[in-house]
Design a protein around this nucleic acid. Structure first.
Lengths: 119, 119
DNA sequence: ACGGTTCATCGACGTTCATCGATGTCTCGG
DNA sequence: CCGAGACATCGATGAACGTCGATGAACCGT
């Protein structure tokens, strides 16, 4: 019931009537974003040098314990919002911009009349 | 600590380092969206005839009890995602597209280098 | 003025979730 | 080969949340 990265995820919310399944799918993805700690992690990684950040450099600026940071990072990776690459004994993270665009598209406002321009 | 509609809400997450306050603010707004019932309510109102929907027509298609629907609608209004207008004994709801755009802007990907083009 | 309809509020219950300390696993340097 | 550092996993705990039935408040037709 989680927001796996493989999902393409939904048409725009305002474009057509969302089914319960699609709604749960999109809600699962949004739920991962809807947390201060995870938003700041996303922001920390995005603004990090070279666009990637080591987990060891995220614990202190986030002000949470190491297990908590690890937990949030796992959720972000599972949702496809971050990618993890383990190099040596460090784990490096990057943001996945396409995944953010996915959410943006799902939230496109006033899309109710933009489906078929006219035959 | 809620997502009041008056908030302008944050710079893009990927553009600059999010402070804890801003993160909580944006998270509060996203938390309202991150629920299947509320997403479907938003979708129901958006795709309704004339762009507005009566609360009485939302209970049955949502498949939840009337108090639950009322509760979710209140949260959406408080977050500024819906507007409520009481006419007679019915309550009519409309989506607020600007509020959706706010979230879209906050989630703009790859905005790390788009702040100041060059002086 | 009364009864029915619409909607919000209240109180309660079960689930989900963020957080932590303790522990386990892996990798490297000496 | 052993110890230290980095990270994930486990188990527990307290708070937040979605849901419902019951109740309350407002607004009409008759």
């Amino acid at each position: 019931m989680e927001a796996h990265a493989t999902e393409v995820c939904c048409q725009p919310v305002t474009a057509s009537l969302l089914a319960e399944d699609e709604a749960e799918e999109l809600a699962g993805l949004l739920k991962v974003l809807a947390d201060p700690a995870r938003l700041r992690l996303l922001s920390l990684v995005a603004t990090a040098e070279a666009g990637e950040a080591c987990a060891c450099d995220l614990v202190e600026p986030l002000g949470r314990s190491q297990p908590t940071v690890s937990h949030h990072l796992s959720l972000l990776v599972e949702a496809g919002l971050l990618s993890r690459e383990k190099r040596g004994r460090w784990a490096w993270y990057r943001v996945v911009p396409e995944r953010l665009s996915t959410i943006q598209d799902a939230l496109a406002p006033g899309a109710a009349f933009s489906s078929s321009p006219r035959p």
